[in-house]
């Protein structure tokens, strides 16, 4: 290895590395400094700074954009844990603004209204790491090919319904299991079929997992939901509307943090799930129209 006498910033190892430090943790959506502090005290590993949580974005309608920088700075000033923020799919300039603000991670997110229906942001040219949503292995590897340093399931944000997150997690993990048994010639065809770069399919097969950290997101509302996602093989969870749209956010946040660490201990899960008050009101995903399905944004 060449000797680095001087510091080198924004490298792949540094960007993917931050995601590795978040493993086994919970990333919580917050809309102000007070919520951010509650999240940090409850044990969140990071917060996602937003103007509205996904459930409110759904209710509000219209075009959902990057949050006001003032809001993001307020939240950055309130906590010592990493702060993430969302830009629209393909919105290069929103991403540049978020990087200039100094956010620790950018979520190029289908929860906001897409800005480009052809291309996602070229994430390689940024020093700040990106996380992107995916519904299956092909989509996950396409995002990694564009420079994503972390992948999350899309799920169906703002519904409090875990079914889509489970579907996406199973699709990704299941495909990784299937390629373990494929020969090289099958792998070339499979890579073409799922629209992913062959090199990344090969690397994923060798590792037995994605080359970057994989979190669950979209509809997680209870400690049991979080533990279920860990059992399915996720490295950690995002909780969006599930915490601050529930009756007792601090208690629920804390319980979800404990459920992610102790997902293998049903007695602990039973204990932390007691008396959490009302969870967020849920939505049956089957009753949403195609236009209301956030997961169908991006490709």
């Amino acid at each position: 290895m060449k000797q680095l006498a001087q510091r080198v910033y924004g490298t792949v190892i540094v960007k993917r590395g931050l995601a590795q430090m978040l493993k086994g943790g919970v990333i919580m959506d917050v809309v102000n400094a007070e919520q951010a502090q509650i999240a940090e005290e409850a044990g969140a590993v990071a917060v996602m700074a937003l103007e509205r949580v996904p459930a409110d974005i759904r209710a509000h309608g219209g075009v959902a954009r990057m949050a006001d920088p003032e809001k993001i700075l307020e939240i950055m000033g309130a906590v010592t844990i990493p702060v993430m923020a969302k830009c629209r799919i393909g919105h290069y300039m929103e991403a540049k603004i978020l990087e200039a603000l100094g956010v620790d991670f950018i979520d190029e997110s289908e929860v906001l209204t897409p800005a480009d229906e052809q291309y996602h942001v070229n994430k390689w040219e940024f020093k700040v790491p990106f996380v992107c949503g995916a519904r299956d292995l092909g989509e996950a590897l396409r995002r990694i090919a564009e420079g994503a340093a972390m992948i999350r399931s899309k799920g169906e944000a703002g519904t409090g319904n875990v079914v889509e997150a489970v579907r996406h997690a199973r699709a990704i993990i299941g495909a990784i299991r299937r390629i373990q048994g494929m020969g090289e010639e099958e792998l070339v065809a499979y890579a073409r079929e799922i629209g992913a770069p062959y090199e990344l399919v090969l690397e994923t097969r060798r590792l037995g997992r994605l080359p970057v950290v994989l979190f669950a997101a979209g509809g997680i509302a209870t400690p049991a939901d979080a533990a279920l996602m860990m059992w399915l093989g996720m490295d950690g969870v995002f909780v969006g509307s599930g915490i601050f749209k529930s009756e007792n956010p601090y208690k629920r946040a804390r319980a979800i943090v404990e459920a992610v660490t102790y997902w293998q201990e049903p007695e602990i899960l039973a204990m932390v799930s007691r008396n959490l008050g009302e969870p967020m009101y849920g939505i049956d995903v089957r009753q949403l129209t195609e236009a209301q399905r956030l997961a169908l944004r991006g490709w």
Binding site: L4, Y9, T11, V14, P82, D104, F105
Partner: peptide, 9 residues
């Protein structure tokens, strides 16, 4: 913050 993260020998 994260943008100040680095590698060095």
């Amino acid at each position: 913050r994260q943008i100040d993260s680095f590698e060095v020998d």
